[in-house]
Design a protein around this nucleic acid. Structure first.
Length: 869
RNA sequence: GGGCGUUUAGCUCAGUUGGUAGAGCGCCUCCCUUACAAGGAGGAUGUCGGGAGUUCGAGCCUCUCAACGCCCACCA
């Protein structure tokens, strides 16, 4: 592209063409590369690594835009910034994709075997892992791709192994048989946070268990009769008088005839169901606990596929059936045996696999766990003492509640795609060694389970910086990172685990601020999902409206409270229109300034009130943008910048410049503005910047220093004067509209003030209100005229031919009524002694001033009406 | 059961320590004024979910009720 200053911008703003060109320019100049040897203050963000299987979605677009804004803003603060990109191997998600592909060919992963399967998956992952980061480029992401990482790459794998071995050696990782959430489809254990509960209609079956050696029976209630074959006891509450005498007795299970004891346990709720509960430790987490307390056996009757096992405990007719079939059959058999006492409708919560929505089977199995309580302690402390701050703060409560009630984390997965657990078993003795390497590959076999994906993502902020080599320059310079930007949906999955792991292994919080934004939803507030078919593809939006338009719109919609964001395609017209406005205004400025001149300063000795006004406005804008970004009020910034450019610079200053212009100021404001906007709309600002006739010492606008508030441009009183001019122009335009006077016919006006008060603004009035002549007379005698007021100034417009005096009286009367209403409410306040006494001085003053203004205005209108009548 | 959020113009939403309500879109009138019709000028529209309280003053603070949404827990 031509970076020759002062060359014209193209007539039509073609967003995509410009954006591609500009991104290429940054890439070719290596603009995003972080320098770990820099002396500048560091600022770093690690990207929430998108799934390697993924394609860019609106969530990434928002998350990426916000990160890029922070990165670009801080780069312009002259900090050494690093935005670390990368992907997550996404264990279950990726494996599901590959298995689905195999399934189409009629194959399962077992047909291929582990080695071949992994080979296929790696190949697939390598083909795809660049895709999503390439798509991030379309967002204008200024991340350092030379540092790109993958959670399964060598460095991350080493970090994972080290963490695992260390935690094991510290006694914080253990292996054991526990009830876990088992997904029969994924064929793996999953963690508690990967289990979603859905309310489903079901039944409560009451089944009678006969007492042994005596008359009578005990009736239990269950929602899952098929698990009864794994029963090892009936439990009742020790304080339940109904059952007092039965405790310690034995009963006979229906259908199988096995004998089980009746035990007492506080866990049983007397008021639910029949007050008697069957205990199935191998298939229910609560029963599992009860079983441990009472030393009961654990009888497994459902297998890993969710089918009834073929063992002595399950009746032959039931063996091999699926859970669902088994339930029906069991109920039928119970009916036949006349032990089904009652069936009632009962809605209850059923666990579902987050990945595939299959109903979870609580299953007893051998798994690896991380002991979380000791790790959680410092993680709680770090948030409580403020070394990690959540924005908005309310998420801290959420985080703390979860952390304070944390349970052990099941980290083993019966998958193949992932970090294989570094535990090795002796082929003969079964002896287990946990170590970084296999002690003897001939005699030891590695644990087949892999780790939960979030185990490696939990190390992301430091494993990407070269840890465990703490001398790595990146680690030295950029760790701990500064800000983490993410949605609230992964606070538990990811944020919490990074904090615990970061504190445990680096003794530092991995970031100081967690900026949580809302989720993107469709126009009806529904979560976007492929299966619902309500997704909007950000790539399509970029093609249609441009990247900057997408970024600006999303930013504008991103409010401080972190509310979810409802979007629809048309909403992005907002950003597109704005980009177009910026382009055209800039084009106008570049076309209307002296050629071949460099504007590098503003001469403050020769400024009009309009110049002072806009400089003052810019100053205010700079101040509030800087304040707001520090407080993560990023949406606010978008709206401030929109307002300044459109309603101040374009609507007024650029218009005024058509009458009388100060090229220095015209260019200066635009140049400063481009910098202010650059973090949000990087491409268009860079493109225009390249053509700006200003001094450029840096490689691009992205390296320019972000504008700062300048006291020399404080012009409050002049700015106020200018506001009066605007009020006057607006009043005249308004009058025109009301009398239907076309702009083509110019008007004469009479102002009841001294001429020298207005000398500066006469040209503005002439041009912007299409005024022909201006007279200055205290008391105009023209009767056939309309008038408008600006505070205590009366402007008379003779309208010989047009005016209907009766109508005009009505119009003025209406105005006066409105003003009288306002005056009335002001008087009420001012007549209230308590108001005068307790309200702050400036509020009282303001009210008094307002009152005087109103009174003056009312007086003028009153006189006018008298004159007209 | 516990926690959180939302309720403001027809729609989508802002509204920072309490000072008397705003934007975009849509709607109505006029205008192709040589940066922009993806534009310009003007206009209409709100008992700020209901009720009570604190205060001179409440969209904002307190209590309460209601509706919707989310998260955690998981009584078979």
């Amino acid at each position: 592209m031509s970076d020759k200053p002062n060359s014209e911008l193209s007539t039509v703003y073609n967003a995509r063409e410009i954006e591609n060109e500009i991104y290429k320019f940054w890439e070719e100049n290596d603009c995003f590369k972080a320098d770990s040897s820099s002396k500048k203050e560091p600022y770093s963000i690690v990207i929430p690594p998108p799934n390697v299987t993924g394609v860019l979605h609106m969530g990434h677009a928002l998350d990426g835009t916000l990160q890029d804004i922070l990165i670009r803003y801080n780069r312009m603060q002259d900090k050494e910034v690093l935005w670390m990109p990368g992907c997550d191997h996404a264990g279950i998600a990726t494996q599901n994709v590959i298995e689905k592909n195999l399934h189409k060919k009629g194959l399962s992963r077992f047909d291929l075997g582990r080695e071949k399967f992994l080979e296929t998956t790696w190949q697939w992952a390598n083909e795809h892992k660049n895709r999503i980061l390439e798509q991030f480029k379309l967002l204008g992401a200024s991340f350092d791709l030379s540092r790109k990482r993958f959670t399964l790459d060598e460095g991350c794998s080493n970090a994972v192994k080290k963490v695992f071995v260390d935690l094991y050696n510290k006694g914080l990782i253990y292996k054991g048989s526990y009830i876990v959430n088992w997904c029969p489809r994924c064929q793996s254990a999953i963690s508690d946070v990967e289990t979603n509960y859905e309310t489903e209609p079901g039944h409560l079956w009451e089944i009678s268990y006969a007492l042994k050696d005596q008359m009578g029976a005990i009736v239990i209630a269950t929602t899952r009769p098929e698990t009864m074959f794994g029963d090892v006891a009936i439990a009742v509450n020790p304080n339940d008088y109904k059952y007092k005498d039965l405790i310690g007795k034995t009963c006979v299970m229906p259908l199988t005839g096995r004998n089980i004891p009746i035990i007492a346990d506080e866990y049983v709720d007397k008021s639910f169901g029949t007050g008697a509960l069957k205990i199935t430790p191998a298939h229910d987490p609560n029963d599992f606990e009860v079983g441990l307390r009472h030393n009961l056996a654990q009888i497994k009757v459902i297998d890993e596929k969710g089918c009834m096992m073929q063992n002595e405990y399950v009746p032959p007719q039931i063996q091999g059936l699926t859970r669902e079939e088994a339930r029906k059959k069991t109920v039928k058999m119970l009916e036949e045996h006349q032990v089904l006492v009652r069936v009632s409708e009962h809605t209850h919560n059923v666990g579902k696999c987050q990945r595939c929505n299959t109903t979870i089977e609580p299953l007893l199995s051998k798994q690896w766990f991380v002991k979380m309580k000791p790790l959680a302690k410092p993680a709680i402390e770090a948030v409580k003492n403020g070394s990690i701050k959540f924005i908005p703060q309310r998420w801290e409560k959420n985080y703390l509640m979860w952390m304070e009630n944390i349970r052990d984390w099941c980290i083993s997965r019966q998958l193949w795609w992932g970090h294989q657990i570094p535990a090795y078993y002796h082929n003969k003795t079964g002896e287990m060694v946990v170590a970084l390497e296999n002690p003897d590959p001939n005699n030891y076999t590695q644990e087949s389970d892999v780790l939960d994906t979030w185990f490696s993502s939990g190390l992301w902020p430091f494993e990407t910086m070269g840890w465990p080599n703490i001398n790595n320059p990146d680690y030295q310079k950029f760790y701990p990172t500064t800000t983490l930007v993410t949605g609230f949906d992964i606070i538990f999955f990811w944020v919490a685990r990074m904090i615990t792991m970061g504190l445990e292994f680096t003794k530092k919080p991995p970031f100081s601020t967690v900026y949580i934004h809302g989720l993107i939803r469709d126009e009806f507030g529904q979560k976007m999902s492929k299966s619902k078919g309500n997704t909007i593809d950000p790539v399509d939006l970029i093609e249609k409206y441009g990247c900057d338009a997408l970024r600006f719109t999303l930013t504008y919609l991103c409010t401080y409270g972190g509310q979810d964001i409802k979007i629809s395609d048309e909403k992005f017209e907002f950003g597109r229109n704005f980009a177009n406005k910026i382009w055209n205004a800039s084009r106008f400025v570049l076309m209307n300034i002296s050629k071949d001149k460099i504007f590098d300063s503003v001469d403050t000795t020769n400024l009009s009130i309009a110049d002072k006004w806009i400089l003052n406005e810019l100053n205010e804008t700079i101040k509030s943008v800087n304040e707001n970004i520090k407080n993560y009020r990023i949406g606010e910034i978008a709206s401030i910048l929109y307002e300044f450019f459109w309603s101040k610079y374009c609507d007024w200053y650029v218009e005024l410049s058509k009458i009388e212009k100060n090229e220095q100021v015209l260019v200066y404001i635009l140049a400063q503005y481009l910098k202010l906007l650059h973090p949000i709309m990087p491409h268009i600002t860079e493109a225009i910047w390249q053509k700006m006739p200003v001094k450029k010492e840096k490689k691009g606008i992205l390296f320019e220093n972000y504008p700062k508030y300048l006291e020399k441009f404080e012009f409050n009183s002049d700015a106020k004067k200018m506001e009066t001019v605007f009020e006057t122009i607006k009043a005249l335009r308004n009058l025109r509209a009301e009398f239907n006077i076309p702009l083509a016919s110019k008007i004469d006006i009479i102002i009841d003030k001294d001429e020298n008060l207005y000398s500066q603004i006469i040209p503005y009035l002439k041009r912007l209100a299409k005024v022909n002549s201006i007279k200055f007379e205290k008391d105009s005698s023209i009767k056939k005229s309309a008038c408008c007021t600006v505070s205590d100034t009366k402007i008379t417009v003779p309208l010989e031919d047009i005016i209907d005096l009766k109508q005009e009286i009505i119009r003025q009367q209406k105005k006066m009524d409105k003003l009288l209403g306002e005056l009335n409410s002001l008087n009420q306040r001012l007549n209230n002694e308590k108001f005068i006494k307790s309200a702050p001085f400036d509020v009282v003053e303001k009210t008094k001033n307002k009152k005087q203004e109103l009174e003056a205005e009312i007086k003028i209108i009153k006189n006018t009406i008298t004159k007209l009548s």
